[in-house]
Design a protein around this nucleic acid. Structure first.
Lengths: 225, 225
DNA sequence: ACCTGAACACCGTTCAAGT
DNA sequence: ACCTGAACACCGTTCAAGT
């Protein structure tokens, strides 16, 4: 195999190898050097096929997104929205390192565009205008990113067992007599309770976004607001 | 000044220096070596006062949070919630690197707890139970984190002028005839339109979260859902 | 064309040694 | 006690050179 010519590198083989490294040892283990080792070549060969490490990560995200399959969708617009966002959320939370890449400044996999289109369609079907649908998508997507970020970060935090538990330190500094009724809640919040379901959250968010098409909220609505 | 004893280091002086580095040259410029230089000492002196670089970042966040001042709050619960979240959002978006730290796994500044308490109070005042208030806070906070993450990342993306604009490449791969009615919207989405106001988004989210206390949404409500 | 070895300019952190 | 120089074990990336 490692003879003269045939052991070629290619964009695809890079991504293949990168994917298996990430699957085995996590995103932190994915370095250009390690990738080159895995492919039996030298770090710089990689730069022939990929401009950057960032481009490699992007390709990795793109492949993950391409695997995403649309299930049969419910006919009710609200349910369709929930289904689509849960799909997105589940797919992304299976590889939480994506959040870090997102936060570092790269975004959008082209393969996600079909899903986004279905979401926009559903918002329109629920009675929003095109522009409103765009804004609504923005809000719901950003909520989703937030969920991914926070869940990932609490996971990381608790995974670092060697480090003195920060949250305990924080809570020790607080006077519990201060606002006693909320003390338990605060603890739960700080502990980042994992049992709150994304599906419920996105449901509430979507309801809020569709509010324009239904009766006024508690506060009594000035429709010009 | 740099004589025998008096040029002491302290936790506070580290954070002072770190803060000014971040203010001048951004978070990427904050390295232990640079910080030591700025303080006229060597990198390892720092480890006497700080366990980690992570701990330093945490201290930095904590200081930022401590600067946050509560303005007079509106009496209406919904408006109070909007005000509080906008306060949080504004304060955090002034130092967007915090998002990266958040995404990397550290979270929660103790100084934010008073604000969180006011938010929980307001949710309760709007008619939610304690547990519901906790869940509602979660959702609204995660939406906020998502907004910060996405805004920060599009900013970074557009700041990298040297790199071939990724979004243009992506859009070139798409057949615009495919779903022509949505083409413009998609472009806007990909460009990460900045003009959508956080205040409107959080308003919609809060409305959705308070929905339980008002009339049923469009879909016609099975209250068991 | 495609690949490489050696090197550059960095990181955070540890260790043994200085005063 | 407090600080330090030199070193360790890494990074991503560039350059000039090999075939």
């Amino acid at each position: 195999m490692a003879v003269g010519r045939p052991a070629r590198l290619s964009r695809d083989s890079l991504v293949d190898a990168a994917e298996s490294i990430v699957a085995t040892d996590g995103i932190d283990a994915l370095t250009m050097r390690r990738l080159a080792d895995e492919l039996g070549s030298s770090p710089m060969s990689l730069y022939r096929h990929v401009r950057d490490k960032d481009e490699l990560l992007l390709l990795l995200i793109e492949r993950r997104a391409a695997e995403l399959e649309l299930p049969p969708l419910p006919s009710d617009a609200r349910e369709r929205l929930v289904t689509l966002f849960v799909l997105l959320f589940d797919s992304l939370s299976r590889s939480p390192w994506i959040v870090e890449v997102l936060a570092k400044g790269d975004l959008v996999a082209p393969s996600l565009l079909p899903v986004i289109d279905r979401i926009l369609e559903a918002f329109v079907a629920a009675g929003l205008s095109g522009e409103e649908a765009g804004r609504a998508y923005h809000v719901a997507w950003r909520y989703t990113v937030g969920e991914l970020t926070v869940r990932h970060s609490t996971e990381r935090h608790f995974a670092q067992l060697d480090r003195e538990p920060l949250l305990v330190r924080i809570m020790a500094e607080i006077d519990p007599a201060e606002l006693p009724s909320l003390a338990d809640l605060r603890l739960e919040l700080a502990a980042g309770r994992r049992d709150a379901r994304y599906e419920d959250g996105i449901g509430a968010v979507i309801d809020g976004l569709l509010r324009l098409t239904c009766s006024a909220p508690t506060t009594g609505g000035d429709p010009s607001a």
